[in-house]
């Protein structure tokens, strides 16, 4: 009886802790949503009871009739949102096309400088972006990549590719080469073995890595800020536009942030199943 009581107490405490952590983790999101529903007058008051308004959402999505000087008058948020979507998903697609074969090769074949190559991919991720941004910007201007979708998608590979390669590599390493050889003896060409046998096995890793890569790309700020202008401006960069010398529209910024974070939340929820399994590296069993 003593043991069951203790077990129950431990259960209550751990549940309580989880609830606390849940509140702690969700607080910024709740705060952001609250701010996005406030009018400009209520913004800086400590009053917790206020009349919610959708004005901010209307303003960023459909334009602001009362636009004041210095604040972006023509509402560009929908366009920026599309830009973010295009460059992020473009970057993930390119990373998938390049990263999956690269991860496979790093997992399966022995070649000279293999580990160095793998490390180089990884180093893209931990080298600070600020280190490369100035030379990159000069190169981009010379090559004509400045302020183009292609340019941003390309530079985003620094963010998305290493993640995909390293997660998928460990997945491929976990698959016994025997399976591929068995399929070879069974008379399948390599591409069909890959699609029918290997791809289903790495799918959890693929989904998790692709999602994280998408989130990282979506959140990236410095690359589109320096290497892009009005053509490819993403939501992260455009958020700056709500602050001007005259006035700071934190409520609109919050509204923009709420909408901008929706795709990530929806994506994460829809593939949550994969996300948990996918990041516990090497969950493949035959």
């Amino acid at each position: 009886m003593d043991a069951t009581l203790r077990k129950r107490l431990i259960g209550i405490f751990s549940d309580g802790f989880l609830v606390l952590y849940f509140l702690f983790a969700l607080f910024p999101i709740v705060w952001m949503v609250l701010v996005s529903l406030k009018s400009t007058d209520e913004l800086f008051t400590t009053q917790f009871i206020f009349t919610p308004t959708l004005d901010n959402y209307q303003a960023i999505l459909f334009g602001d009739a009362r636009a004041s000087a210095g604040v972006i008058a023509r509402q560009e948020f929908p366009r920026n949102f599309m830009n973010s979507f295009i460059v992020s998903s473009g970057a993930v697609i390119v990373s998938l096309l390049v990263g999956v074969p690269a991860a496979y090769a790093l997992a399966r074949y022995n070649f000279k400088g293999k580990e160095n190559l793998a490390f180089t991919f990884l180093s893209f991720r931990f080298a600070p972006e600020l280190v490369v941004i100035i030379p990159l910007s000069l190169i981009y201007r010379q090559l004509g990549l400045y302020d183009s979708y292609f340019g941003i998608i390309w530079v985003y590979q620094l963010v998305t590719l290493p993640l995909l390669i390293w997660v998928l590599r460990s997945y491929f390493e976990d698959i016994s080469p025997d399976i591929e050889q068995a399929a070879m003896i069974d008379g399948y060409p390599w591409h069909r073995i890959f699609i029918q046998i290997l791809l289903p096995l790495v799918r959890p890793g693929l989904a998790a890595a692709a999602l994280l890569a998408f989130v990282f790309a979506w959140n990236n700020f410095i690359f589109p800020l320096v290497l892009g202008a009005s053509n490819v401006q993403t939501v992260t960069v455009s958020a700056l536009g709500y602050i001007s010398s005259a006035q700071a529209f934190f409520n609109r910024m919050a509204a923009a942030a709420v909408i901008s974070s929706l795709p990530q939340m929806l994506l994460a929820l829809s593939i949550q199943r994969y996300l948990i399994r996918g990041l516990s590296f090497g969950a493949v069993k035959g």
Partner: peptide
């Protein structure tokens, strides 16, 4: 035909 030591079955099937 080869029966592998590790069986090498196709897990998705």
């Amino acid at each position: 035909a080869l029966a592998f030591e590790s069986y090498a079955l196709y897990p998705p099937l």
